[in-house]
Design a binder for these strands. Structure first.
Lengths: 330, 330
DNA sequence: CAGACTTTGGAAAACGCTTTCCAGGAGGTT
DNA sequence: AACCTCCTGGAAAGCGTTTTCCAAAGTCTG
């Protein structure tokens, strides 16, 4: 293993000079020595030892990204946005997937703290249990006390910079749009009730219906994935419009209806949330609420990396998009 | 920032003892001292400095994963498989996305080398240009000389352990299955010709047709994504069956046909490759060749982490799955 | 109960880099 | 010509761990 000292010796200069040449320093090094060092490094095949560098500098060039599930296109899109920012700043990304287990999220923060990453990004809905949130917060505080920066994509519950999708309002606007089509009897394919994002979407949707003086929707809980949507959709008889709290569940619902010979949108309208791009070619195409996922990820990292004078929460609103899966009545 | 020395002092023991208690050592520490150290660490909120640990140990607990594009479900699935293995071994994952730029792939290997990651996984098709491959190989060799382990999911061209999807055979079997349905006139929606995977799929498919004594397929090149499939599909008139070299392109083709009023499968049959799970609910459902993506990622990491006596190439075969998007003629 | 091991704890030398001082020389100013 | 400054290069002190020796104290065995 070639060390900086080897390079220095090979070039006939001091360790300090070699360091200054090879790893960006504010100090100038004369052209002749600089050339010698570069040549020596190339000849020996020198590669910086980042661990040593991190130790000496007291700061790393890595950021941590914690997501629920990388195979869920929602998270993949957000992660992609964040990674583009990271890359543009020359930062590497360390990633952890929790598979929706809050304990793992806490554990990852601890691990990333040990790694002394520059910043950590927590992507995904917070949970309703205040004790879990409290413990996560404590872990984050500890990390921040030692200089770590944190941002979150989700709900503003951690006392850190947060990009907050306006789930309530997006769902409410979707409800109004669907009601505008003439629908009166709704079912909501809700996610688990211990996750805040699906809960907010349910409340936003139901709240808007109430404001409009419409009957309360039937709320059917299920897992936050395709299977959950599939299962919940079997219990929607008598309803003209089904709102799945995310696109992936909506896909499950569509499959369920298809399997049972229920036509969409003739027999029932369906809408989702998120506007996952991989799903844009579904037939019938899915009405949904579009969230600028990649931007959200990018923005969150910018917040984490930016100045830290005050904690910011930036709301991002969704845009209702009606497509073929929903249609007017009569 | 609390250091191990702080903990040792607080507990009234030596640095060595504190280290042995807190970071798995082979050495035993007596129960009373062990308890004191653990208490002190908890009280002070000690968190290991992994950079220092890596430096002292000369080995890190991180692996590097290089993929083309995380938002492509193909790579997300493979990455997920690899990450599960990593997690089960207590390893963190550092991830880099190349967006199909071979230069970036080389650059990432260099960076991951600097990070002294335990192993790097290169996921994705190799390129046809031998010079690029040669340079990547050189970079990998340098990394391996300093103890790094490498595995690849793709083609066995790098002199490292490789999980090789049998693209040729999978495509050939698909061709035979489709021909068995009575099709005679085929078009292939091919990817860019500088990527080996799509090229192999084209050759496998075309080769099988030739063996069967059927007319040569029309080969239409396009980008390796949905848009490429969409565009290429506009030039398939006169053909009864279209093979897109991956599912994502097939989705584009489906959309293209739909937009032009061409019915699938009545007017034309369509098949893809990979069997992306997010796409299983497409209508019409897509005939394809299933690859065990998560397993491939997991297996590759196991190879990289396992003993290194000899370089292994493990072929994984695809399974032809005919669904609604393809049907027999007449 | 002596000698031979086996445990257990601590001192101190790495690990590979950054960065603070220092020193010497070049260039400017009175 | 004497005095300052500015620049460049090097010596050496960290950064926070791990781990190799040593030494002291048990624990066995015959």
């Amino acid at each position: 293993m070639v060390t900086l000292e080897d390079v220095a010796r090979h070039a006939g200069v001091s360790l300090a000079t070699a360091s200054r040449v090879l790893n960006g320093s504010t100090r100038q090094v004369g052209a002749p020595l600089r050339a010698k060092v570069e040549l020596a490094a190339a000849e020996l095949g020198y590669r910086t030892n980042v661990a040593a560098q991190t130790l000496a500098r007291g700061a790393s060039n890595v950021i941590g990204l914690v997501v629920h599930d990388l195979t869920d296109p929602y998270f993949a899109a957000i992660a992609d946005g964040a990674m583009r920012v990271a890359e543009s700043q020359g930062l590497m990304v360390m990633i952890g997937t929790t598979h929706r287990d809050p304990e793992r999220e806490i554990a990852y923060v601890s691990t990333l703290n040990a790694q002394r990453v520059r910043a950590v990004l927590l992507v995904g809905s917070r949970v309703t249990d205040p004790r879990t949130t409290q413990r996560l917060r404590a872990e984050l505080d500890r990390y921040r006390e030692s200089g770590g920066r944190v941002a979150c994509v989700g709900q503003d519950l951690l006392g850190v910079d947060t990009v907050v999708p306006d789930n309530r309002r997006g769902a409410a606007e979707l409800a109004r749009a669907l009601a505008g089509l003439g629908h009166r009897n709704f079912a909501i394919l809700a996610g688990p009730d211990w996750l805040i994002a699906p809960r907010d979407r349910v409340e936003g949707f139901a709240g808007a219906l109430e404001e409009l003086g419409l009957p309360a929707p039937r709320v059917l809980h299920g897992t936050f994935d395709r299977e959950g949507g599939y299962a919940a959709a079997t219990r929607t008889s008598g309803v003209t419009c089904v709102f799945a709290v995310n696109d992936v569940m909506a896909v499950g619902a569509l499959a369920s209806f298809r399997d049972r010979g229920v036509r969409v949108p003739e027999d029932v309208s369906v809408a989702g949330f998120d506007d996952i791009s991989t799903l844009r070619d579904l037939v019938p195409s899915l009405s949904t609420v579009r969230l600028p996922l990649a931007d959200m990820g990018a923005r969150a990292l910018e917040l984490a990396l930016g100045p830290s004078e005050e904690v910011r929460a930036e709301a991002v609103s969704g845009e209702v998009i009606l497509r073929e899966s929903s249609r007017g009545l009569g």
